[in-house]
Design a protein around this nucleic acid. Structure first.
Length: 360
DNA sequence: CGGGAATGTAT
DNA sequence: CATACATTCCC
């Protein structure tokens, strides 16, 4: 094998290029409609934290001096296409953000990139306008006709409709292009652009961040089958699951899913499900696991909440309880697990139900 | 800024 | 009518 062919260019001057040193955050940012005004802040960086905010940033490598960086919204398609959404905020104009640098620091941070959400109804018009512009550029030298004929116009219109169908309004990427000055000082020399990872609109139903707000119980029997009311941020009833899991020391992981159907998801904000059985229903000690929400389609998860599995009721306890009034069974059970009343059952083994004693 | 809520539209 | 998504409004 010829190793030289695998590592070309090593003796040449390092190539000038633009590198993304801080990716945009992929989730949690909301695209804004024009009617909402431009003052809602920009996309943060992937490693941003509440007290240490970061923003998308690039570095121009192997070059020091004047340059201009242009940022635009593009699609997630393989050759990226210009998106109908545009950038708004400081230094943004015509839907793009333009920043000049002069060195010696050749890094640029973009703290104010807002993403303008174009209404669906405007998409075709925008795309068609772009196609017409492109058509004009192609035909600008032919003096015969400066405008497309009706038939050509119709063709462009259909093409625009076609593109509109394929265009996902819920996700964009940032494309950074650096322009270096030519001999006359005009910034016309573009280097190969860098394209960021995707940014998903937090308002999109299928991309909103998942969150468990509260549960009516955070523990249950190892036998499972117990009903839990869980309140959550907006979910889609056919694309959501409640996942119980436990990561073991050896790297293996137990998982099981809360049982519910689409109609158990109430108005997108609550889920009523039955707990799954723990893999070992015969545990003798309380066992901690986690619960979180998971979206089937993209595997996204919420933060986890702790959940404790308790040992199943023994056969003895079950038959014992069987003789008791079912209405008071739950009360009795909570007393058992309640510190100072721990010995309640044990000290009165042959206790039988009497309203005068157990009534609260 | 960053959110929730209200309103409009499509199934 | 009910539900969910899209858009707008507003604290």
């Amino acid at each position: 094998m010829n190793y030289l062919e695998l590592s070309p260019n090593t003796t040449h001057e390092p190539c000038k290029h633009i590198k993304i040193i801080e990716q945009p955050r992929q989730r949690g940012f909301r695209f804004r409609y024009g009617c909402e005004g431009p003052t809602h802040g920009g996309v943060q960086g992937a490693s941003s934290e509440k007290n240490k905010k970061t923003f998308p940033a690039v570095e121009i490598c192997n070059y020091t001096g004047p340059a201009r960086v242009v940022v635009q919204c593009v699609t997630v398609d393989d050759p990226p296409l210009l998106h109908v959404h545009s950038l708004v905020g400081k230094q943004c104009e015509n839907g793009m953000c333009v920043v000049g640098v002069s060195g010696p620091d050749m890094t640029v941070s973009f703290p104010n990139l807002g993403i303008l959400h174009v209404p669906r109804r405007s998409v075709v018009d925008i795309l068609e306008e772009r196609l017409v512009q492109g058509w004009r550029r192609e035909h600008c030298k032919e003096l015969q006709h400066r405008d497309p004929t009706d038939r050509e116009r119709d063709r462009l219109h259909r093409a625009a409709q076609q593109c509109a169908r394929a265009l996902d309004l819920t996700v964009v990427r940032l494309m950074f292009t650096v322009y270096l000055p030519d001999n006359n000082g005009n910034f016309v020399q573009a280097l190969q652009p860098a394209v960021s990872s995707p940014i998903y609109d937090s308002k999109a139903p299928n991309a909103s961040s998942l969150k468990i707000v509260r549960m009516d119980r955070t523990s249950g029997s190892a036998a499972g089958g117990e009903e839990v009311f869980l309140l959550c941020d907006k979910v889609q009833k056919d694309d959501i699951q409640v996942r119980f899991y436990q990561e073991n020391d050896d790297g293996t992981c137990w998982e099981a899913f809360g049982k519910f159907g689409p109609t158990d998801v109430h108005r997108q904000y609550a889920i009523v499900f039955k707990t799954p059985r723990y893999f070992d229903p015969y545990i003798t000690q309380p066992t901690s696991v986690f619960v979180h929400l998971r979206r089937r389609s993209d595997g996204e998860t919420s933060e986890a909440k702790p959940f404790i599995y308790f040992p199943q009721k023994t056969g003895k306890e079950r038959s014992h309880r069987k003789r008791k009034n079912p209405d008071t069974a739950e009360h009795d059970r909570s007393r058992v697990s309640n510190g100072h009343l721990q010995g309640y059952y044990c000290s009165i083994p042959d206790f039988t139900y009497t309203p005068a004693v157990t009534g609260d």
